[in-house]
């Protein structure tokens, strides 16, 4: 069933240095199914973090949600003008990009995990809570869980801190885990471990996982479903297999991402990024689209924004090139 639903979400905010609020997300539809792994990809500034933060009520953008709605298990939980969704505490867990920021610097790791445990299990004795917290720390792969529990966040290395943060997020036994670029601040060597940990825990707990990343390589292995965001819009949405193919029918941006990831793996030069005039009234991707110049529908790209078209089983693409 659909756990989290974003329906036509429109978000306005004032990015750093701008004078007035701008449209940052323009009518985004996204659903996260229970027990599935969904990956949301897009480059910096595409709005992927903003989308989830707004949906969960932890965004600092103002005015924020101005159109559309957010639902949880079919029930509307967030409407325009509302800042915090009507969710039960601990139903959604969030793993932040920077564990150094995500953990309370004044509180020991053990206590922070215990706080999460207490959310789902009220009235537990202190000793039992502490034991369960240590179990979680062990589950996220921290050796000497007992020792780590007594440490404070500043005493942990990056990789360990992120694992601790994952324990803090998961100890509430959430139904949805949102992992927002969980590996971006970490060493290359650590990334795969973290991603695999998240996948493992999500499957073990039967929770849905929404993984946000700008790195396709990180998500290719996991995605049951892939959603591609560009310029504040969903440009592609479909099952993992279909959306990772480097060939059509696909959105040109998705193709570019796949080709780039492939090139990084094989060490060959990546695809050239198209450079054309942007089209304020047309497709958001028009300025970068490699497909556009070579096609007969080029004038349409500049003048009218394409709608999401179904190109296969549950696979949607927003491109004039796939409309036929």
């Amino acid at each position: 069933m659909t756990l989290l639903g974003l329906h036509g979400v429109v978000v306005d905010g004032t990015p750093h240095g701008a004078a007035a609020p701008r449209r940052l997300l323009d009518g985004v539809d996204l659903t996260v199914e229970a027990g599935q792994i969904t990956c949301l990809v897009g480059e910096s500034g595409s709005g992927k973090t903003l989308l989830l933060r707004t949906a969960l009520g932890i965004s600092t953008a103002r005015p924020g949600l101005v159109g559309g709605a957010v639902s949880w298990r079919g029930r509307t939980v967030l409407r325009p003008g509302q800042r915090r969704p009507d969710l039960r505490a601990g139903d959604a867990g969030y793993v932040f990009q920077d564990p150094g920021q995500a953990l309370d610097p004044f509180r020991s790791i053990g206590r922070q995990v215990e706080d999460s445990v207490a959310v789902r299990h009220r009235g537990l004795a202190r000793a039992e809570r502490a034991r369960r917290a240590e179990d979680w720390l062990a589950r996220v792969g921290l050796p000497d869980a007992d020792g780590v529990a007594r440490l404070h966040p500043h005493e942990l290395s990056g990789g360990m801190a992120q694992r601790a943060a994952i324990a803090v997020a998961l100890a509430t036994e959430p139904e949805l885990i949102v992992a927002d670029e969980p590996t971006t601040g970490l060493d290359w060597s650590l990334r795969r471990g973290i991603v695999e940990l998240l996948e493992q825990l999500a499957r073990d707990e039967g929770a849905a996982l929404l993984l946000i990343s700008h790195d396709l390589e990180v998500v290719r292995r996991l995605a049951d479903r892939l959603v591609v965001l560009f310029g504040g819009q969903v440009v592609e949405d479909g099952p993992g297999a279909a959306t990772l193919r480097p060939g059509p029918p696909r959105h040109p941006y998705g193709i570019e991402l796949a080709a780039r990831a492939e090139a990084m793996r094989t060490g060959e030069p990546g695809p050239a990024t198209g450079r054309g005039a942007t089209a304020p009234n047309g497709c958001v991707f028009a300025g970068r689209c490699a497909l556009r110049s070579a096609a007969t529908f080029a004038d349409r790209c500049a003048t009218s924004p394409p709608a999401l078209t179904a190109v296969g089983d549950g696979h949607l693409v927003r491109c004039h090139g796939v409309e036929s």
Partner: peptide, 23 residues
């Protein structure tokens, strides 16, 4: 309140005033 750890507390429904007092 813009810090991520405060967001984390909010999502988990922790008592904000008590937790943030030392901060």
């Amino acid at each position: 309140v813009e810090q991520d750890f405060v967001h984390s507390m909010r999502l988990r429904g922790l008592p904000l005033v008590r937790r943030l007092a030392p901060h």
